[in-house]
Write a protein that binds this DNA or RNA. Structure first.
Lengths: 347, 347
DNA sequence: AATAAAAATGTGTACGAACACATATTTTTG
DNA sequence: CAAAAATATGTGTTCGTACACATTTTTATT
C-alpha cells in the first residue's frame, strides 16, 4: 500500500479515515466544504500519524508564484553587502525551479532620503514577502507597518526594529559583540593608556551604537583603568595627533566594517597599534593577513541573507513558521584562522 | 510553451532538438540507445541552454532507493560524536521524503579491534554510499579500498586518509588549528614558564598528533622561550606535582575534547591556569562559562556530518560532485561569544 | 530482396500533492 | 413533498522527470 518507504500519503490518510483524497486535502488546507463528521474522522487519523507532506510533490503541484522583495543597501564589489547578497542568491538557487521569484530593491545606506523614497516605491500588493534591512529606524518602521497592514510578512536582517513584528530576524547580538571586542583586546594590552574608538562617519545607526555600548560596558567592568577616546572619523592623523605624540594609545577599535582604512592610515604613518574591527570583507581580511589588523569580528552576513530569504520562501510555500529571533554567532577571526573561515556554509 | 516561469524542461529541449523526450532523457542519463545524429542535435541544444533539471520532479519520479551507511564512533549523550550525529540526522531530514535511507554503524573509538570487526561487518554490496570516520588509519584504508573495489563512493569526516580517494572530505586543518591555539594563548601570557600540553590518554590518533605539531611549531617560531611539558594523561595531579610546586606552569593546552576534565581537576585543587581545549561539547561550554577554561577551538562537528551526508545523497540522486577537500573554519570560542555560538547553521 | 536481428525512437504511466470540476447528498423553500 | 439551492464528496488532470515498453527505423544475414 504505502509505496514510498513507508511514508504516509494523502491517499493513505483518506483510506484510513474512510473518505476521499479530496476531503483530506480540504482539511489539510482549511479550504472548508467538509462535513463535521468527515472532518472528525480525518482529524482523528491526522492526530495519530503526524503527516508530513512530500515537499517535492507539493512544490511540483503548486502553481502559485510568489515574489520576495529584498530591500538592502546597494553595494560595490567586495563590500559587506555584497556578501549578504551572495547569501540571498544562494538561497534563491534552491527555489529557482519553482514558484519563488526574487525582486531586488537597493538603497543608498548613507542617504536617508533615498531610503525613504526607495521604500515608498516598493509595491506591497504586487509582491508576497519582504526581506528588509532597517538601516533607518523610523523609515523602516513605516515600511514594516505598510507590509503588516497589507497582511503580508517580512524578515529583518542586520538590525532589529522596535515594535515591529517580523516573521523572523537574523543578526548579531550587537551589544555582546562589543563586549567581546573588549574581552579579546584586554589580554593583549601590556601597558596602560587610551583605547582609540572609531565610530566611522555618519553613523547614527543603532547597530554601531549598541556595539559601542557593549564595548564601553565591558571596559568599565573589566579594565576601568583604560581611557576611551572616541572619534567619528579618521581620514588622516590630525584628529589624533596629540594622542599619538604623547604615545597614549594602546589599541584601536573600529566599530564599522572599514577597519582596513584605519589600518592603512596608521600603517602608512608607521604607527603600530593593535586594531580590532568588524566584518570579514576582503580588505579587512587582507589587512589581517598582513598583520595590520589584530582581529576581526565576523557576523555571518551570507548566512543572514540566506536564512532570512529561506525563511520567507518556506513560509510562503509551506506556511512554515521560523524561530522569530535568530542571533548569528560572534565569529572571532585572527591571523591563524582567517584562511579557513567562510560563512558560506550551507551544506 | 515554457510554463514554469520560463524554465526549460526536457520537453522543450526535445522540441528544440527535434527529437522525442525519451531521447533527451537517455542522453541526460547516459543510457545509450541514441543515434549519433540525434545525440549531436541534443548536445548542441544542451550546450547553449544550460539545462537545470527540476529537482523536485526528479526526486519525485525517481523510484530507486539508496542506503547510506554512516560509520562513526558510538557516543554518550552530549559528547562530541553526538553533535556529529545530529548533523547527519538533520541532513537526513531533508531527504526523508524520498529515496535516501540511513544506516548507522557505530564503533568504539578507543578499540581498534572493534573498529576492524565493525568495518568488516559493513555489507558494501547491499548499500550505496558510505560516510566514514577514519579513526584508525590502516583499518580505515582497508575499508576505503573495499568500497572503491565495489565501485562505490565514500565521504570522510574528522580526519583525512592518505592515498584514499573519497568523494569528499570535511574536517579541520588540524595543524593550523594547533598553531591557532598558540596564537591565541601567547598574548595572554604575562610571565615566563612552561606550557602544559595534555594529549589525553590513548591518543595515537593522527588528528591529535597534527594539532600538537602545529602548536609546537608555532611556539617554536613565535615564543621559543616557553618550555612545553607533555603529559598523556591527567587523572590527578601526581604527574605534574613537581611543576606545580615550582609554579612553573603558565598555561595548559588540551588537545582532545576533554579539557573540562582537566579544568575540573585544576579547579578542585584551586589551581588557576588558563586552559585552551577543543570542541564545544556541553561540558566544555559549561567550564568555559564558569571561567574554568579560557578558550575552546570549535570544528563544526554538526556541519561536518551534515555536509558529508548531503554530499553523498546529492551524488547518489543527481550525480553531483562536491568539492573534494573541505576545511571547516577554526572557530574561536571565548566567554564572550560562547552563548551565541552554534554550528547548526543550516539555513 | 526478404527476413531476422539490432538499434533507435516515441509514448504512456507513475511519483504525491493541489486544485478544478463533476457528481452526489443534504438542506432549504414554496 | 417535490424542486431548487446549498453543501459535501469524489474524480481526474496537472506539475516535470524517470523509466518501462511499444513501435519504428536501420543494419545484418541468408
Amino acid at each position: 500500500m504505502k509505496t514510498n518507504s513507508g511514508r504516509i500519503r494523502i491517499k493513505d490518510i483518506a483510506e484510513m479515515a474512510g473518505v476521499s483524497e479530496g476531503s483530506v486535502d480540504r482539511i489539510l488546507h482549511n479550504r472548508g466544504k467538509v462535513s463535521a463528521k468527515s472532518e472528525a474522522k480525518i482529524r482523528a487519523v491526522l492526530e495519530k500519524i503526524n503527516y508530513q507532506p512530500n515537499r517535492y510533490a507539493s512544490v511540483l503541484a503548486l502553481h502559485k508564484k510568489y515574489t520576495i522583495v529584498c530591500f538592502i543597501p546597494q553595494t560595490e564589489q567586495n563590500e559587506y553587502w555584497t556578501i549578504v547578497k551572495s547569501g540571498i542568491d544562494k538561497a534563491m538557487e534552491e527555489y529557482q525551479n519553482l514558484n519563488i521569484q526574487l525582486q531586488w530593491c537597493f538603497f543608498n545606506q548613507f542617504d536617508k532620503e533615498d531610503y525613504t523614497s526607495k521604500a515608498k516605491s516598493i509595491d506591497i500588493d504586487a509582491n508576497d514577502a519582504f526581506l528588509i534591512v532597517p538601516t533607518f529606524e523610523k523609515e523602516a518602521s513605516d515600511l514594516a507597518q505598510r507590509i503588516k497592514n497589507a497582511g503580508k510578512q517580512f524578515a529583518l536582517i542586520d538590525a532589529q526594529l522596535e515594535d515591529a513584528t517580523p516573521l523572523c530576524y537574523y543578526g548579531q547580538h550587537a551589544l555582546q559583540s562589543g563586549r567581546m571586542v573588549a574581552e579579546l583586546l584586554l589580554p593583549t594590552l601590556k601597558k596602560q593608556g587610551s583605547i582609540l574608538l572609531v565610530r566611522g562617519s555618519n553613523e547614527l545607526q543603532n547597530l554601531i551604537q549598541r556595539r559601542e555600548a557593549g564595548f564601553l560596558d565591558a571596559i568599565r567592568h573589566l579594565a576601568p583603568q583604560f581611557d576611551i577616546e572616541t572619534v567619528n572619523q579618521l581620514k588622516d592623523l590630525s584628529p589624533i595627533a596629540e594622542g599619538l605624540q604623547q604615545q597614549r594609545y594602546v589599541a584601536c577599535v573600529v566599530l564599522n566594517s572599514r577597519a582596513w582604512q584605519i589600518a592603512k592610515i596608521l600603517h602608512d604613518n608607521k604607527i603600530q597599534l593593535p586594531i580590532i574591527g568588524y566584518d570579514s570583507i576582503e580588505s579587512n581580511v587582507k589587512a589581517l593577513q598582513q598583520n595590520q589588523i589584530y582581529a576581526i569580528i565576523g557576523q555571518r552576513p551570507a548566512s543572514q541573507g540566506f536564512r532570512a530569504f529561506k525563511s520567507l520562501a518556506e513560509y510562503l510555500l509551506f506556511n512554515t513558521l521560523p524561530q522569530t529571533v535568530n542571533y548569528v554567532p560572534i565569529d572571532l577571526l585572527l591571523r591563524g584562522n582567517i584562511d579557513y573561515y567562510s560563512d558560506l556554509y550551507f551544506g
